[in-house]
């Protein structure tokens, strides 16, 4: 699997621009839907981020998601209050912030799993306000959950097949006539097996998903989301509980999604991952977007360090990382499952 075509620090070096376009040429055959516009803009999108000012709410040259004034309160608590945010197409954007910053709630709002008190947002030009979650997914905006949601009593392979959209056999009148859907089912199964192999789950394909370990469930959920063939995949802490060796190969995989023309938005507390693969970082704290920028500059941003550490200014980034890790492992166990998606 070709993974590391892209230098991580391309955003900061002018020479990297050449590397990027060179790598773009080699990756072209992997583009699933080589629409001319998408091909042209794929890497331009990323280099164009160089021109974007490093400030919260900055406009992007080619945004796939645009959010305006979205607000969600739980009783007296304002969980999300984002004035303006744009997510660039064709790049990997990280969404970071301390526990309780509102990242998961923000995901829920964007994908129709929760309704905001105010605000509007659009995906790929289509306004999403009031759209049912399943319709949002069909438009190509697919999310995973922080607390994994695998279909326990279905096998791993069945979980994967479920991700495919437009299945003829999912219509009641066609279901009893296998001739109508068998060929499509075979293609779906092939695609599912390919993905399972990449996520090192191929040996588990016949097991019940409920028998997988926590980390394996994360992997399955991510692979299953990719079965939908999304334009934007939104991962809520994809690396939580995944072992370091597999993490490396997953990072490569996420990068290859970008190379295929997919946009990625992910929430993560693991700063190594953020630094290694993200092209752009958005920082949330107490429901607001407080900073935006490329990973290198965001790690040294005073406001970000403040948000994580309080007012202890004289801390460097490794300290920040340590604190984040500790916070993460401590507070996570306390997350209640029913909070993930309010009804």
């Amino acid at each position: 699997m070709p993974t590391d075509n892209f230098p991580n620090d391309h955003l900061s070096s002018g020479a990297a621009r050449k590397d990027v376009s060179a790598a773009g040429d080699t990756s072209q055959p992997r583009v699933p839907d080589p629409g001319a516009g998408e091909n042209k803009s794929m890497h331009e999108c990323r280099t164009a981020l160089q021109l974007v000012p490093h400030e919260a709410g900055a406009a992007k040259p080619d945004p796939i998601v645009v959010v305006n004034g979205i607000r969600r309160t739980f009783g007296g608590l304002t969980a999300v209050d984002v004035e303006h945010l744009e997510i660039q197409r064709g790049v990997i954007t990280a969404l970071i912030g301390p526990n309780g910053a509102g990242k998961t709630t923000f995901f829920n709002l964007l994908t129709g799993f929760d309704q905001p008190d105010a605000g509007s947002w659009s995906f790929d030009g289509a306004p999403l306000k009031g759209k049912a979650a399943y319709k949002v997914a069909r438009l190509g905006m697919v999310r995973t959950f922080q607390l994994t949601r695998v279909l326990s009593k279905l096998t791993v392979l069945e979980n994967m097949r479920m991700g495919a959209t437009g299945q003829r056999g999912e219509r009641l009148w066609a279901a009893a006539l296998p001739a109508l859907w068998r060929a499509q089912e075979r293609d779906i199964t092939d695609r599912a097996r390919d993905l399972l192999k990449r996520f090192k789950l191929d040996a588990k394909e016949a097991d019940f998903a409920g028998s997988l370990s926590g980390g394996q469930r994360k992997l399955l959920e991510m692979a299953r989301a990719l079965m939908v063939e999304p334009k934007l995949v939104m991962l809520d802490e994809p690396m939580a509980g995944v072992n370091p060796a597999l993490k490396q190969s997953l990072l490569g995989h996420v990068k290859s999604l970008r190379d295929q023309g997919m946009s990625v938005l992910f929430v993560e507390h693991d700063m190594d991952m953020v630094r290694e693969i993200s092209d752009w970082v958005v920082v949330m704290a107490q429901g607001k977007v407080i900073a935006e920028g490329p990973p290198t500059s965001i790690m040294s941003d005073e406001r970000v360090i403040d948000a994580y550490l309080g007012a202890r200014h004289d801390t460097d980034i490794s300290e920040l990382e340590r604190v984040i890790q500790v916070e993460h492992t401590h507070d996570h166990a306390e997350q209640r499952a029913d909070r993930e998606v309010p009804r």
Binding site: T111, K135, L151, S152, M162, E170, A174
Partner: peptide
């Protein structure tokens, strides 16, 4: 059939099924 599979999926987790466009 895939239709029955969707039904079983709904039994297991409705939100997961929504996130997959069902």
């Amino acid at each position: 059939s895939p239709w029955g599979r969707v039904l079983r999926g709904i039994r297991e987790d409705e939100d997961a099924m929504r996130s997959l466009g069902k």
